[in-house]
Write a protein that binds this DNA or RNA. Structure first.
Lengths: 240, 240
DNA sequence: GACTTATAGTGGTCTATACCTTTATGTCGT
DNA sequence: ACGACATAAAGGTATAGACCACTATAAGTC
């Protein structure tokens, strides 16, 4: 179960073991897990070691502690990881709609001042540009322009663009997506956007900009979206 | 500096001391802080104790560790703690504007269907209603209506309303604010909102709804806001 | 029966120590 | 001058034990 000779830290092995118990339903939601002292004895490790494992799982939201009572399994962490960074596809599926896309253009362009600023590169650098109309249940939902520095994405095709960008980046390129900064504002649809979104002049839209960064801090992606306000509402959960 | 007799945990006192050093500029951004062993000796505590303090600060984003190198001060965490749940006041201050409010109405009303739903109470229940025009640098920024179940807020006055609601709830009433769910959408200003916000017909606005809950799950507050889109942009940071 | 008091079990804090890996630097031999 | 090796210092992991604060329960008292 736990291999003390392994180069993998014991506390990490314990984390995986606990998560396994939760995911396999061995330990049900709301249930009190064995006490730290019990677990320490069972695995023949120090209590501090089991505490380190539990600490990490509490921080990750799998468990919660209650002084004097015990440690308990928190409800459904299944969909929680999506809470933060979701792709359009994930977002639409969560809303029970069929996601889709219509390609407007794809290619390499010179970064405008705005794009260069957001991606922290020099103006005029080459960037991949991907412009799409995003569909929900085959109806236009948003107009989306994605920009990626060419250095980070050696090969880029339409095929890749239509699959999960995050999956491609994390699994194929081995980069770790760390965080994103979004800005959301309201506006009136512009003349160029109007027809492709199927709107009338004066209709409101939601402008969303997103900058995604890698774990090492390098900007990875800049996305500028224009959502139909009559069909899209942005939801966000926050903790104190 | 550190009081070992205090009921406040030593690691927490150390956290405050480190944060103090950072905020006072004693330890500059990017600088390596003294090693764990040095700090442990200086404060006459165990290395594990100083590590607990540093761990918490690393999780909070104040510091970062690099194995074999040292522990370093991360850049500007000044506005970061507000990342999650911010009041209008905190929000405006973070933007470098002077927050203010003009009271429109305050009192107890019967919950409409929408308010009752959000606060998880029966329709027609009594709720506190607080309607204000929110000002930034003395200019109208948003129209805000706040609803609170009467059971949770025994006494409520205009004075309290003008101070920090969260502080009042956490410190005076002893409730712990846990999380909030927000929805954000774009719209066109309505006729009733137009004049009080100083807008013209057809101007875009950002509609924000927020439901705040206590740690025990009970809904605490429902806020419906209408922000001027020309002055307000919503920012949100997310982690994967 | 109702209240108080002990008691055991829980997580929370803290110590002192040991040994590991990673990083940077200096020293020696060539 | 260059490379190989030793060394020091940093954070990372782990131990065994101690005591504290809080919670629930059982035992005792009125």
């Amino acid at each position: 179960m736990i291999d003390k000779q392994s180069p993998i830290p014991i506390y990490y092995q314990l984390e995986e073991w606990v998560k396994h118990n939760i995911e396999r339903g061995e330990w049900e939601e709301g249930m009190m897990i064995p006490s730290e002292r019990e677990l320490a004895e069972k695995h023949e490790v120090s209590r501090m070691t089991i505490r380190q494992a539990i600490n990490n799982l509490v921080n990750a939201g799998y468990l919660s502690r209650e002084k004097g009572k015990g440690t308990f399994v928190e409800p459904n962490k299944i969909e929680q990881p999506l809470q933060g960074l979701t792709s359009f596809t994930e977002d639409m599926e969560a809303r029970g709609m069929k996601p889709g896309a219509r390609l407007l253009s794809i290619g390499i362009v010179s970064a405008t001042e705005m794009v260069a600023n957001r991606l922290d590169i020099s103006e005029g650098s080459q960037v991949f540009e991907l412009r799409r109309v995003r569909l929900a249940d085959d109806q236009p939902m948003a107009l989306e322009a994605t920009y990626l520095p060419v250095e980070l994405v050696p090969e880029f095709s339409e095929t890749i663009a239509n699959h999960s960008l995050y999956d491609y980046i994390e699994n194929e390129l081995g980069f770790e997506v760390e965080k994103a900064t979004q800005s959301i504002e309201a506006s009136i649809v512009s003349d160029e956007e109007r027809d492709v979104l199927g709107l009338e002049s004066g209709d409101p839209v939601l402008l969303i900009e997103r900058c995604t960064s890698l774990k090492d801090g390098r900007p990875l992606e800049f996305v500028k979206s224009v959502y139909r306000a009559d069909r899209y509402k942005f939801y966000i959960d926050m903790n104190r």
